[in-house]
Structures are given as structure tokens and as C-alpha cells.
Design a binder for these strands. Structure first.
Lengths: 332, 332
DNA sequence: CTGAAAGCGCTTACAG
DNA sequence: CTGAAAGCGCTTACAG
């Protein structure tokens, strides 16, 4: 069962491939209605599906965009991926995705793969020291937009971010206003700009209120397990605190788990704030108070930006910042 | 900045494209070491990245597999997608994904897209009445494996499933053994085989224990919102029940939310069981008792199966069934 | 051991 | 209004 090609429908209708190609691509301003209709009709009848690989080879455009993200299983990223796919689909693109696990080597491999697949552009959520990998893209003329996480040296490239620092400051202010003076901070992993930004927000706010104490800062990573581990560590560290600001919602989930288990009442004994506002955060009990990033919007916007770049539209803003917003729920 | 091609490195080394192609593809048994090394070296030096689009056009293989799933944002599906991507990557394939939203029209569109992109195969999580769409694949000679959800008429095609009926029966047995006699069942949406299978499990078990009552069955869908809505409905229906079996974990989350809000104690006032065992289910409080599907394994296995089919390996089993397992935690 | 040539299915000037 | 031809970058018999 051979696939039907443009050639088949050309010979079927008695015209040339060129003509068929033109009408199929709507570049048919100068083709007679009669031929056009004949072609369209037989294309339909033969269930013709264009071979877009062949098309890509001659146009040098694949119509696909790549997403590189740490782990699709993390709700924050899957929500972004969803937004991107919606946006891409909307504009006639499709999407390839890769899980980097924050591993630079994997990133590199995937980037090479995507170059080789001729992706038209990439949406990149960095796993850390990704600068070299991005240089590779630049060298190959593949546009990319960074989302959520800066990459050292690319602060001025295309990107859509959230004002992380400001977001954390809002959260700390809220805790402070509630009378909290010993606010522990669970920071993200080293090497991620996002971690740094959020930590900076914490530091600035804490200093501003005169409650800064470096012993209140604990390092972790952006996973549930990380949240559990750091919380256990905090508890055993001997440092006193009356509230915890987790650098991400899923860390907060892990942390709350530990606290609840040990019999702490949230928010009575201890207040909790997260960061992200992933969908599930309003479904746990107590509902998580968190600094919301407009996740879907960020994903969607990044996709729009990328496609605009690909299609050579005029770009009014290379850097897009969204405002975070404190969502007050049950944990603080 | 022109991309470097096989031609460039051919003229650079003074051999033909054919020779270059052969050594780059390790079909170089009959190429002298000298030439081979020269070619490899200059390829490296020139940062050559093969154009796999061109390659695909001549080999008629794209090296990509497609995933069609309802919504990547649903943890069950993102965990499957992750497993698939890992497996694919492992075997040198990459992955395109599409969110169907259980919408047959979208599915159709995406399938056409994937055919046109020459995907080597598809992993398909059906949104319902997908039979026509699958016929399209068959007609185009594209292998596919179904995961999690049967499609009418394809029960004997390639697929990896979980014994849904049996899983529910285990759960009902557990509740029964705990003394529950009025077990409400929140079923999934019509038109999904998975819903039907799980409902059948409920019916069989309930009848077996002589506690069947059709008034205890409530229809919903596999979302958090669905779980909330159906639970509110149950509560207002006047029907009495001492426990609820939700057809999926995220439904259970939504349901628990409503119950907790109304002041019910779980599991004291009412017991809850979910289905799936998505990762988050052990992080909510109380931890969800649920019937576990081996999600990662199912995804991974489906990918292995598909690639085996693609590569013409011998397939010992077209249908793969995993055993569900009741995970007893805090809600029942 | 290596090269010339055809072909994959399309698009795109160009010519008529 | 339509067709012939070249080209996209690779692979793969085939010939030598």
C-alpha cells in the first residue's frame, strides 16, 4: 500500500507536480478554477496527506518547535508544556519535547538532536549551566526563548520570566505582617538563576525588616523529596523558626507532609508559603498559600514570542516579565 | 552561516559523499582506516550535525514517535509521557506529543499531522470513539500501540493495559472487609472503555457481596473538578453511603476536598479509595489509599513494544496486561 | 576500497 | 494559466 504523493495526483489529473503543489499550498492565484477544483477533488478522494519531511527538506523549515525542560512530570513544567503545545498548535506548529533532568549532558544531546531535526526554534527551560549549549543553537541559527530560568550570559536574549525576587518579597512581607519574625527559607539548588533570584528576594525583604539571619536559609532542590529532606533537616538543625518559605510549591508539599506527620498544625504552629501556584496547590489540605506565577500565560507567551521570531515578525519586546501575585489560602 | 553538509566534508577530505555517508553511518566495514579517520576528524572539526530530515526522506524513517494523550497536565499522563520519552531516548528515538482533550476532531487532526511528519509509530491514549482515527493509521501503515484505554474494535491490536476490573474489585473487597456496606462509586465518563471496565469491577464485586445498588453509582469524569462536582452531587442526592470509590486519583482529590470542607473526617466518617497511584497521591493528607497502576512501567513497556514493532523485532505478546495493586494508606 | 548516479517527495524560480 | 527542471541533503544499490 504505497503512499499517495503529489506525483500520483498530478498524473491522475493530467497536470504537472508543480501545479498540484501550488494549489495544495494555496499559492494558486494564477491557476484556473477548473484545474484547482479537479486537483482538490482528487487529492481528497485519494486521501492525500502531504509528506512534510519532503516539504521541510526543500523549504528548510520543519514546522516543529522543540521544548527542553527538566521533567515533564513536574506539574509546573507540564503546565508550561501544555500552554506551549496549545499555542504551537494554534499557529500550525507541532511540538517535540525532551526531559533534561537538569543534566547538561542530556541537554547537549537533545539540542544536537533538535538541530538535526531542523526544529524551527526551541523553548528552553534551563537545567543550570546551559550557556555552552545555547551557543550551539546560536551557531546553528536556531532561535530560542528562555522560560522561567535565566541562563548566565543570556539575560538579554529572548525570554519570558516572572519577577521572582519581587514575588518572594511579597510573601515575606505577608508573613512579617502576620507577626512572623523567624522565617526560614528553603532555597532551590545552586546554579539555577531562579534559585538565586528567589533567595535574593528573601534576603532583601528579611534585611529590610531587620529579621535576616543566614542560619534560616537552607538549601534544597525543586522536588517533593527535596522539600521533605530539607524540612527534616530544618527540624533537626536546632534553629528556631515560625514559618517557612519554600522556593516552590512541590517542595512545600513535601515539607508540609513532614510537618503534618510530626504533629505540627499548619498554619497554627507554623506558616507555610510556596511559590508557583501549580494547579494542585489549591487541592491539598490545608490549601497552600503561595506566590502565583501565571504559568499558562508564561508558556503561551513564550510560544507566541518564539513563533514570531521564527516567522520574522517584528518583536517589540525581547524580554517579557510577568508579575507574581500572592495567593492567600490556608497555610499562612 | 551556512550549515555544514556531507558535501562539505566530502570535498574537504577529497572523497565522495557516499563515502562520507557510509562512515558517518558506521556502514564502513570496507572503508580504509585512513579515510575513515580523516572523515571523522574533519566532521568533528566542522561541527557537523547530520540533517535528519534529509536522511528521513531517503530512508523513509523519521526516528520519531508520536504520543497522543488527552492532557499532559494530568499527572497520570505526564508520568506515562515521561516513561515513553525515556524509553524512546534510550533507543535513539525522539518524541512528539499532542494533547487531544478527549476530542475526536483534535485527535484526527493530530493523527494526520503525525502521518505527514512520517512518525515511525504512535502511542495512543484514546479520548473515546477513536476507531476511525485508528483506521487512518492502519491505512497509512503506521504502527501504534494503545495504552491504558481500549478502543472499540481494537481490543486485539497492540496494547498495554492494566486489569482495571480486577483492580476495582480488590478495592471493593478491602472496603467490604472493613465493614463498609454502602460503597458509592464515582465512575468515569461514558465512551471510555476504562470507565466501563472499572464500573464493571464495581458491579461484579458489589453483587458478589450482595451490596449492589444502582443508586450508588454516579457519573463524573477523570478530573479534579469532576471529582468535586460528583461529590457535591452525591452529598445532595439523599443517598446514604459510608465510602466512595473514585475511578481515578485526581477525582478522589477533588472529592476529598469537598468532604473535608464540609467537615467530614476521612477515613472516620467516610472512607475513600482512588485509582492510579499517581505520585502526588502519597503527598496529600491523609494519604490516598488507591489501586496502583504501574504507570511508569506501562509507559515504558508501551514504548518498547512500539519500537520493537517498528524495527521488525519478533513480538511475543501483542497485548500486555499489568496487575493493579491495592496500596493501603490513610483514606480507607 | 571508493565514486557516480538515482532517488526520496516536495518547492520554486523560470520559461513559455 | 501551466510545465520542465533544478535543488534540498541524504542513502543505497551498483559498478569498477
Amino acid at each position: 500500500m504505497k503512499k499517495v504523493t503529489i506525483m500520483d495526483i498530478a498524473s491522475m489529473t493530467g497536470v504537472s507536480k508543480a501545479t498540484v503543489s501550488m494549489v495544495l499550498n494555496k499559492k494558486d492565484s494564477c491557476i484556473s478554477d477548473a484545474t484547482r477544483n479537479r486537483i482538490l477533488k482528487t487529492a481528497r478522494e485519494m486521501h492525500y496527506i502531504p509528506n512534510s519531511i519532503a516539504r521541510s527538506l526543500s523549504t528548510n523549515k520543519s514546522g516543529t518547535i522543540g521544548i527542553i525542560l527538566p521533567d515533564i512530570t513536574n506539574p509546573f513544567f507540564s503546565e508550561i508544556a501544555r500552554a506551549i503545545e496549545d499555542g504551537a498548535n494554534n499557529r500550525g506548529y507541532n511540538v517535540m519535547f525532551c526531559n533534561s533532568d537538569n543534566n547538561i549532558k542530556k541537554e547537549e544531546k537533545y539540542i544536537e538532536l533538535m538541530i538535526s531535526k531542523l526544529v524551527d526554534g526551541i523553548i528552553f527551560i534551563s537545567g543550570g549551566e546551559s550557556r555552552k549549549n545555547l551557543e550551539r543553537l546560536t551557531a546553528n541559527n536556531i532561535p530560542f526563548v528562555l522560560v522561567d530560568r535565566y541562563v548566565d550570559g543570556y539575560e538579554n536574549g529572548y525570554g519570558v520570566y516572572c519577577h521572582n525576587e519581587e514575588g518572594v518579597m511579597q510573601g515575606i512581607k505577608y508573613l512579617y505582617d502576620k507577626g512572623k519574625r523567624k522565617i526560614a527559607f528553603a532555597k532551590g539548588p545552586k546554579g539555577l538563576e531562579t534559585s538565586k533570584n528567589r533567595l535574593n528576594g528573601y534576603k532583601r525583604a528579611a534585611r529590610q525588616y531587620g529579621i535576616y539571619d543566614s542560619k534560616l536559609i537552607f538549601e534544597s532542590d525543586f522536588t517533593i523529596e527535596g522539600g521533605k529532606a530539607v524540612t527534616e533537616y530544618m527540624l533537626s538543625s536546632g534553629t528556631e523558626f515560625d514559618s517557612i518559605f519554600y522556593s516552590s510549591d512541590i517542595m512545600a508539599f513535601g515539607g508540609m507532609k513532614v510537618l503534618l506527620r510530626k504533629g505540627y498544625k499548619i498554619p497554627d504552629d507554623i506558616s507555610i508559603i510556596g511559590f508557583d501556584n501549580i494547579r494542585i496547590s489549591e487541592f491539598i489540605e490545608p490549601e497552600l498559600t503561595t506566590v502565583a506565577q501565571p504559568i499558562y500565560k508564561m508558556g503561551n507567551r513564550s510560544c507566541e514570542l518564539l513563533i514570531d521570531i521564527i516567522e520574522g515578525a517584528e518583536i517589540s519586546q525581547k524580554l517579557i516579565f510577568f508579575k507574581p501575585e500572592l495567593i492567600i489560602r490556608g497555610t499562612a
